[in-house]
């Protein structure tokens, strides 16, 4: 089980557009990726509703977990994605 903690860099938070990009990237890994706010129940990172329901705001931390081959690499790329201001792109 690989785990990463990352701070949301998108200036308006992990909402519709950044969330959609993130979900697409998470789905492309082909792994079971979950995302959670620290201390809360994780949600499926490949579900747009789940990710939006998380309501992660700018500057808040989220915890990503994944299992399976290449989980570390997959999470690293997702961390890199969340570390960018997707909303400004």
């Amino acid at each position: 089980m690989a785990t990463r903690t990352v701070t949301i860099a998108s200036s308006v938070g992990l909402h519709a557009r950044p969330a959609a990009l993130f979900v697409e990237a998470a789905s492309n890994t082909g792994l079971d990726v979950e995302i959670a706010k620290p201390g809360e129940d994780p949600v499926d990172a490949t579900s747009i509703l789940g990710v939006m329901a998380l309501g992660a705001k700018y500057g808040e931390e989220v915890v990503l977990t994944a299992e399976g081959d290449g989980a570390d690499e997959a999470l690293d790329s997702l961390v890199a994605l969340l570390s960018r201001d997707l909303d400004a792109e």
Partner: peptide
């Protein structure tokens, strides 16, 4: 009102699940 916006979306998403 970026924050108000961000309060609505997660709740709506949670409800839609």
């Amino acid at each position: 009102g970026g924050d108000a916006h961000m309060q609505m979306l997660p709740k709506l998403a949670r409800a839609l699940m």
